[in-house]
Amino acid sequence: MAQIFRPGADTLARVVLAGIAVVPVLAVGMATTLWRSPYATAQDVTREQPVPFSHEHHVGGLGIDCRYCHTSVEKAAFAGIPPTETCMSCHSQIWTNAPMLAPVRTSLAEGRPLVWRRVHVLPDYVYFNHAVHVAKGVGCGTCHGAIQTMKLVRQVAPLTMGWCLDCHRNPGPNLRPREAVFDMTWTPPAGQAEQGTRLAAAYHVKSPARLSECSICHR
């Protein structure tokens, strides 16, 4: 009777057996790593914009308050992208012929909004509201990072569900007094642990159990 298996069959069988054990683990590991990587989350991706608006210059250099342009951040889900009129409040008088600002002037003349490229994109099944975060003492820099150092804005946080939950399960370390919310240079003071607990109570921040419920962000 002829041999059914060739001499290499044992090796092949061992490789296949090992593969059955290892490949699913590797595949799941790679998938989750990739899924959380900047490649998938767009973390640290700097977006080109129609006008190279620099937060480094306007916020870090000139000290303009966040709310001068993002007017609805305290009362709406969206912080608000300023209308061209806001740019022209100053640029009707200074840098009036700068080639860099040509799209702004065209936008005002033609009444067509500038089309900025969105940097922070959440999936549509996520509910996010700026106003409530600001009202509860979460500062701009907590999620947006050191905007005042960015020539073009990039997303510094991964914006994954795990990242959101890290704070929803333990908001204390990220709470600051309301008057410091728009202070881009704020850093947690020495007694932040006690301050966080105190502010959470004072601002009626809901319990970690409530903040971790599905319907808080998926509604």
Partner: peptide, 10 residues
Amino acid sequence: MARQKRYDVY
């Protein structure tokens, strides 16, 4: 699901 056919702000 992530990009639903609806008009969001902006």
